[in-house]
């Protein structure tokens, strides 16, 4: 009996792997983009087939932005990386896998879509959280991942810092503010999705600091009757960048497809897909069309307030940096 069934099962399992495309790309991305790239890849594959007649298959890998960069450095054969922040691609570039001037190769800092940091609160907003300074009130539990491992968490942290520096006017006061905020954080997950799960499913905390797209997704998955999105008046412009991994793409001979793949982001279709998945599109027409989907938030950039990622990373998240000092106390 078993002898007759076993080959059948094995055959079935193996048969499904028979499909092979002309070209295969591996896109190594960060945590919350799973749904975005599922959508985008489908559209690109169809468009590319139509234009060139070639079939292409896109493989995805998702994880914390920092650890994904680490994997690429350790030899994960990514043709393109689409990470949460420029610093992580800089780290890959530092090992010679990506050209140093990678961020200039595509327009708008190689960030075809943007996002920002918003608050996800429970229905009715019981703790009345409207702005960043509500987060340091006693008795408010804030959920955010660990800035050491998570790209989203670094944006969260910098957004809070930017707010405080603007409101109180000095870096010292900003440091105190962010310190107070982290005193209200009961648990630090390693990635953005982990924090969302902690807040949404385990019911821990009063407010989740989240990527705007992640907040919308949680609301879509679990219903508007359970969670509300609160957009603070001021937040950070998060620019998740994309790049071809030169060394891998050249070795595999996939550069042309990889470049076409990333450029597809800048088409109307690509921008529309970003907007549909609650990422803010760059294209002004699409942005206008989806205007109502996104709250009006005054956005500052990391270059304005922190002088770029390299500096921010070193000062705030490096060994013994400000985050370490804050979190120890």
């Amino acid at each position: 009996m078993i002898r007759r069934i076993l080959p059948l099962v094995v055959g079935l399992l193996w048969a499904s792997s028979a499909f092979a495309a002309d070209v295969t790309l591996l896109n190594v991305s960060y945590d919350p983009t799973r749904e975005l790239y599922a959508d985008f890849n489908k559209a690109f594959v169809a468009a590319y087939q139509k234009e060139t007649g070639k079939s292409v298959e896109i493989k995805q890998s998702h994880g914390g932005s920092g650890s994904q960069a680490r994997s690429v450095i350790d030899g994960l054969q990514a043709d393109v990386v689409t990470l949460a922040l420029a610093y992580d691609i800089d780290a890959i570039a530092a090992k010679g896998l990506v050209a140093p001037e990678w961020q200039k190769r595509l327009t708008l800092n190689s960030s075809p879509y943007t996002s920002t940091i918003v608050f996800l609160v429970r229905k009715g907003n019981p703790k009345a959280i409207k702005d960043w300074d509500d987060l340091i009130k006693p008795g408010v539990q804030v959920i955010t991942p660990n800035p050491k491992t998570s790209g989203g968490a670094r944006w969260n942290y910098l957004a809070a810092w930017g707010f405080a520096e603007k409101k109180f006017g000095s870096a010292d006061k900003a440091k105190k503010f962010v310190g107070d905020l982290f005193k209200n954080v009961p648990v630090l997950d390693t990635g953005a999705r982990g924090s969302t799960v902690t807040f949404v499913e385990r019911g821990v905390g009063d407010v989740l600091l989240a990527w705007e797209n992640e907040a919308f997704l949680a609301q879509r998955e679990f219903g508007k009757d359970k969670f509300e999105i609160v957009a603070p008046p001021l937040s950070i412009l998060a620019e998740p960048p994309v790049s071809v991994v030169d060394k891998v793409a050249d070795k595999k001979g996939t550069r042309a497809v990889a470049e076409a793949y990333l450029k597809y982001w800048y088409t109307k279709e690509g921008q529309e897909i970003a907007a549909r998945n609650s990422y803010r599109p760059r294209d002004s027409e699409i942005a206008k069309e989806y205007e109502k989907s996104f709250a009006k938030v005054e956005l500052f950039t990391i270059d304005d307030v922190f002088g770029g990622w390299t500096k921010a990373q070193k000062e705030h998240f490096g060994e013994g940096g400000i985050f370490d000092q804050i979190y120890k106390n």
């Binding site: 994997s71 450095i73 350790d74 030899g75 994960l76 054969q77 090992k95 070795k251």
Partner: peptide, 21 residues
């Protein structure tokens, strides 16, 4: 051992042997 930055990484990469991932 086998990572691109590891002990045998350079050799493996040069010979197109993918062990990790």
């Amino acid at each position: 051992l086998f990572g691109a930055q590891g002990y045998w990484g350079t050799w493996l990469q040069a010979h197109n042997v993918q062990i990790l991932f």
